[in-house]
Amino acid sequence: MKREWFALGIVALLVIVFPASLFGYQAWRTNSSDARVIDVIASSPENGGWSPDEIRVNVGEHVRLRIAAPDVVHGFEIPALDVRVDEILPGHVQEVEFVATRAGRFPFACTRWCSVNHWRMRGVIWVSDPAQPALPAPTFAPPLYQQLRIDIDAMHPAQNIPPRKPSAARGAQLNLRVDADFRTQSPDAVFAKLRADAAYDAYDDQQLWDAIAFAYFQNVGAENIANGARRYARDCAACHGERGDGQGPAGKDLPGLTTMHPDMPRGPANFTDASAMLGASDALLQGKILRGGMGTGMPEWGSLYTDADLWSVVAFLRTFTFDDPPAP
């Protein structure tokens, strides 16, 4: 009989203590840390998106996010707090720690294309300061397009189309000074002004366009273009296409501007369309990126991008209409 009890004891040990210790280990991992552990589940929007999608922490609190991806690859970023995880593989858990130093409302987002709805996968971190319960009033300057009263939802075809795709490399050879404010003026408007100026009569249309391309890229700088290219690949190419032609796989079923009028173009904008791009000022493009399409399928990026980021993607968008951007 003694050996029966022994055998039973061992079985009980294995069947009860072993599983219990597994769950115990997990509880210990959570509770033994000096940081506040918050479990976050990253699922594609169809499967529930972020859970939770609102996280509340305090200023100065040591927070550890434990992010799990049950379905497909996701990424995580709180741009304002400079917190990011580039890759959360399915079935893996990625931990990231941070201490928020200022109060506020900070959006976070998924950074990998996890589904056609990936861009909807966003959430918010509220950081409150126990010493100062009210959130500071946001300091807010109206974006440039509003100051200029540009209607960013209207069509903006260019009056003048270059005979060939303008090239900054050819433009560089011309040694031609172009003074223009590209933020507020479309390339088309810049061209019209130059053409009307008798000082440029010696140059043909193509030469003027090449000079504009060169001047534009000189103005924004290689660094910005490179930063814009990275963001474009990560956030925009799935809809607008790797070649900027609007044919990205995630853009296939989006309504586009038809939500405003059935005759307006469907789907994501085509950045290789010279007329639309040359007719748009940087302020217009930046405005659309910042505010989004409000129902067209074009997401808003103003809450995730800094001003500099916004201008840098605009600069990169120009490389679809202007050849030979400077290499960083």
Binding site: L14, F18, P19, P90, G91, H92
Partner: peptide
């Protein structure tokens, strides 16, 4: 038996990503 039990517990409470379960 405990391995079998672990297979059930991980199936019920573990990640839905099969390759990591």
């Amino acid at each position: 038996l405990p391995i079998f039990l672990l297979a059930i517990l991980t199936g019920l409470f573990g990640t839905p990503a099969g390759s990591r379960n």
